[in-house]
Amino acid sequence: MKKMALTFFFVPFFLVGCSSANEQTIRIYNESEVGGVRADVEGVIAETDEVYNGIAVFVEDELLVSLQVKPWLAFKKQKIEERVQKQFDEQYPDLNVLVSTDFKLYWESEKLLEEKDQQKVVDEVQKLKELAKEET
């Protein structure tokens, strides 16, 4: 009986993860002079239903879009990535775009949102793009 009570006591802790708000959050770091792009980027991410979090870092001619795909769709990550990448490539042929669903890129771009020094952001974005290509 005591064991049973203990088990039921822990049930809410396990279920607490299911209750978080299911709204999409999109954040954009925009230091680029290209106007009107901000809304477009936000629109493209918002259209992608499989994504629950998106960060776009936009400096000079670099655009880094890091997305977090809904947990149940994790196996489709690569396809979603390719689709969004294609969408961005068509929309901005003169920009260096990288779309990634990797957690590392999301984590690092979240930090970049607070960064004031633009040169630092450019360096970091280039470093992250290199990192995304890494296979080993």
């Binding site: 590392k104 890129l105 990192l131 890494e134 080993t136």
Partner: peptide, 11 residues
């Protein structure tokens, strides 16, 4: 992933 330069693919 968080403390080193590993991505999801390489970690």
């Amino acid at each position: 992933i968080i403390f080193f330069d590993f991505t999801e693919k390489t970690s």
